[in-house]
Simulated assay, not measured.
Amino acid sequence: MSTTQRSIGHRVVVVGGGYTGMLAAIRLAHRTRRADVRITLVNPSPRFVERLRLHQTAAGQRLAEHRIPDLLAGTGVTFVQGTATALDPERRVVVLDEGAARLDYDTLVYALGSTTDVSRVPGADLHAFTLDGPRSAGLTARLRQVAADGGTVAVCGGGLTAVEAATEIAETHPGAQVTLISRGEPAAMMGAKARAHMHRALDRLGVTVRTGAGVAKVLPDGVELDDGEVVAVDACLWTTGVKVPPLAADAGIAVDERGLILVDATLRSISHPEIHAIGDAAAVHMPWGLIHGTCQSGLPTAQYTADTIARLVRGKPVKPFRFGYFHQPVSLGRRDAVIQFTHADDTPGRWYLTGRLAVAYKEMISSSPLTTYRLSKRMNVTTIVSKGGRATRTREMR
């Protein structure tokens, strides 16, 4: 590091103010409070989005407003509102808003998360709503109108988000006929007993489940299935498939076929080690395979990366990242839930939780990031429930 660089401190830029970027910035500020480190967090909006609760907002429920500057208050982290539109990893520069501003960095934390992919199925980008991004606008009002008219809502997808959205909509808008459309079994990653409880909840709420054929096309007033059948619907919510911004790939940073940054065992880019990728922006491998993007895995990558940067700034060695899954929490409306406890590789274990205890457990999980941010301003709070056990102790550097 040059004399000039030392005089202005070690510059860390965190791109992305979601769950992972927020924790990385706050925890790193605490870990480097006695070091000459300057941290800047960049995000297009000053509003912090609780993605774990997006299915609630889709059903028209109002949530508490959280502002990024308020969450960062007292940390010393500088917030810059802007959209990262380009990276120059050779000059170590982040370009904001098509060149309106530039941020120099010594270390970059890349935390640009994924969004729902509406490009793979014709018509989804034109006629389907999503829980995130521009296609979420107007969903709440549309659902209210459909419910008032006794119309039909199609929730397309078989993942946990689809199940949460379908049950939330059905409970909040009992006048609507909700149909969950999935090629395979919904929530197939859960154990049989947990899925049985989920299906009982779907039946109780009047949700129709259609499996065996995926959606081939989204129409203005329906969805066309793979087998050619057209299902008439008044509103379509798309929850399947994700994509990441092309920013890293466009900058020449090594990425996989989906655009995720390829990282080593310390979550540093294999092509540009001054770049640390976290959450669902990174292709993180464990012995059983690739970690999929969830808050459960994302927060540990943020915690680990903040600690890693703090150690590197001080010239200390770092150990490889280790992580194991612990649970699959699913809300089934506001009065029911199911929690499937898992093995480290996210396969279902023997134990599961349902009913009021599961509702309380799920609410604790959904609220935990904000609690973690507040506590992380003054202490080191762990977000890692499991490090994966014996299988990850011998993990080789990738």
Rank of each mutant, 00 (worst) to 15 (best):
Ser136Val: 01
Ala166Lys: 03
Thr130Asp: 11
Arg142Gln: 08
Leu180Ser: 06
Asp203Thr: 12
Gly184Lys: 09
Val155Asp: 06
Ile169Phe: 01
Glu164Asn: 01
Val163Pro: 11
Arg195Glu: 12
Val207Ile: 04
Arg142Ser: 11
Asp132Gly: 13
His197Arg: 12
Glu171Gly: 02
Arg200Tyr: 06
His127Met: 01
Ile169Pro: 00
Ala188Gln: 11
Gly175Pro: 06
Arg200Asn: 10
Ala188Glu: 14
Leu143Phe: 04
Thr179Glu: 07
Ala192Gln: 09
Gln145Asp: 14
Met189Val: 04
Asp149Lys: 03
Ile181Met: 08
Ala166Ser: 13
Ala176Gln: 00
Leu126Trp: 06
Val121Arg: 00
Ala196Pro: 02
Gly158Phe: 07
Ile181Ser: 11
Leu202Gly: 07
Glu168Gln: 13
His199Glu: 12
Gln145Met: 12
Arg204Val: 13
Val153Thr: 14
Thr152Cys: 10
Gly157Thr: 06
Gly133Ile: 14
Arg142Leu: 12
Thr161His: 09
Asp149Pro: 05
Thr167Asp: 01
Asp132Leu: 10
Met189Gly: 05
Ala187Thr: 13
Gln145Arg: 13
Pro186Asp: 02
Ala170Glu: 05
Gln177His: 08
Ala194Pro: 01
Ala148Asp: 03
Leu202Ala: 15
Thr172Asp: 06
Arg204Ala: 15
Met189Cys: 04
Thr130His: 15
Pro122Asp: 05
Ala201Gln: 11
Gly150Pro: 13
Ala147His: 09
